[in-house]
Simulated assay, not measured.
Amino acid sequence: MLVDSHCHLDFPDYAEDLDATVERARAAGVVRMVTICTHLSRFDQVRRIAERYDDVLCTLGVHPHNAGEELAEATEERLVALSRHPKVIGLGETGLDYFYDRSPREAQQESFRRHIRACLETGLPLIVHTRDADEDTMRIIREEASGSALKGLLHCFSSGRQLAEQAVEFGLYLSLSGIVTFKKSEDLRGIVADVPLDRILVETDAPFLAPLPFRGKRNEPSYVAHTAAVVAAVKGVDAGELARRTTDNFFRLFDRAVPPPALAA
């Protein structure tokens, strides 16, 4: 059993074959998929997809690319209110992206802080996107959550060793995408080898970043099995052990998510 902790099933890439995409994931042993909100204005579409399938959950949040345009609407109070929906298991993705800088950095930082505060109020985990912003990401997390029990993960982790160590020390998880399978990702695999297995999740970030051997094609939740196989090899465990451990990690972090009966037993 595997969990795809981060995908985007509301994206138009799946408009024609969403049912088949979900079925392929089930056939590959994926017991839960988390479809991630990137625009507050699209939350209704994200929520409806989660309501459509028993094994699909969702989040609520504003991607840093969209922070500037949605900052006025994405208040802490609104995040808290909308997050009460039972299918919402986390807040994000939020964070900082200084690589593209598609929103002003001040807006990204303020949006990030609001999501953290909403997480602390609701007890929901935080889903963090960070690119070329390692120092500010951890600084803001520490400033907002100092002395508090903030839960969360760094999604699609591909940053350096220092951020990995700081995140794990803080109590965060690292979620690994298809990037870990790429030939050029030797440094990342070296970092993953040293990250405690009880702090690792796997994801697709579908439709992006398809793992080998599908690189360059549309990604989908069933492909998380290929990422998990590489992570298992890096960690020196078999695929079944990796699946069990990362799935246990997921339900420990996202404690609003209900495990399938086989795991609950």
Rank of each mutant, 00 (worst) to 15 (best):
M1P: 15
L2I: 06
L2T: 00
H8D: 02
H8A: 03
D10G: 05
Y14N: 10
D17R: 04
A20I: 13
A20V: 10
T21V: 07
V22W: 00
V22A: 02
R26Y: 06
T35C: 01
T35G: 01
R42M: 15
D44M: 08
Q45R: 14
Q45A: 09
R47G: 04
R48M: 14
R48Y: 10
E51H: 07
R52V: 07
D54S: 15
D55E: 09
V56S: 07
T59K: 01
G61R: 02
G61D: 01
P64W: 05
A67F: 00
G68N: 00
E69I: 10
R78S: 03
L82C: 04
S83F: 00
R84P: 01
K87F: 02
L91F: 04
L91M: 14
E93S: 09
E93V: 08
T94D: 00
G95M: 01
L96F: 06
Y98M: 03
Y98Q: 10
S103P: 01
P104G: 12
Q108E: 14
Q109K: 15
E110M: 12
S111P: 05
F112N: 00
R113L: 07
R113D: 10
R114F: 02
H115P: 00
R117E: 14
C119S: 08
C119W: 01
L120K: 11
T130G: 02
T130K: 06
A133N: 04
E135D: 15
D136E: 03
T137F: 04
R139C: 11
I140D: 04
I140W: 04
I141G: 05
I141F: 07
E144K: 09
S146T: 13
S146L: 15
A149D: 14
A149T: 15
L154K: 06
H155A: 06
S158M: 09
Q162G: 11
E165V: 12
A167K: 06
V168A: 14
E169D: 15
F170N: 14
F170E: 14
L172C: 13
L174C: 12
L174W: 13
S175P: 13
T181W: 07
K184I: 12
A193F: 11
P196W: 09
D198A: 10
V202M: 08
E203G: 05
D205P: 07
A210F: 09
L212F: 12
L212W: 10
P213Q: 08
K217Q: 15
R218I: 06
E220M: 04
A225Y: 05
H226M: 14
A228F: 09
A228P: 07
A229T: 13
A229V: 12
A233Q: 14
V234C: 12
G236L: 05
G240T: 09
T246E: 11
T247M: 02
R252M: 12
F254W: 03
F254S: 01
A257C: 07
A257H: 03
P261R: 11
A262K: 11
